[in-house]
Amino acid sequence: MRHIISLLMANEAGALSRVSGLFSARGYNIESLTVAPTEDATLSRMTIVTSGSDEVIEQINKQLNKLVDVVSVMDLSDGDHIERELMLVKVRAEGADREELKRMSDIFRGRVIDVSDKTYTIELTGAGSKLDSFLQAIDRKLILETVRTGASGIGRGERILKI
């Protein structure tokens, strides 16, 4: 099953490689991994999307907790949470396609953030599945480039990950 795991870790050199090394050494899947500093500069927050049986997910949580740099771990999928991913898509936008692409972008609540004679760059956020749908909805031949951040997640309401 797919799980989305959030963790806070010391913002130290090498901390990221400890996490990614753990996943590769133990053969766990990583679908995506995002990391950036938090409002407390000594901490980074990471979101990892992974999949595995309940036993594997339990081990992933325990092994992450065992890393000395990791301050706290939460499996967001254990409860209500929100998940967002950012995607930038550069598309060939000429002639009639220009209008159509703009329309599709609006339907998906995207924004055109860069325009040239021949291209648009569209920004989209949402759950990963929404981004997938957008890519399926537009003409594949028009896609020049896509870049996605991978999911970031946060618990709903009072579900808070802190030290």
């Binding site: 036993e55 339990e58 081990q59 325990k62 092994q63 907790n65 065992k66």
Partner: peptide, 8 residues
């Protein structure tokens, strides 16, 4: 002492 050893 190591929770990760349990139910591994």
């Amino acid at each position: 002492i190591d929770p990760a050893s349990i139910s591994k």
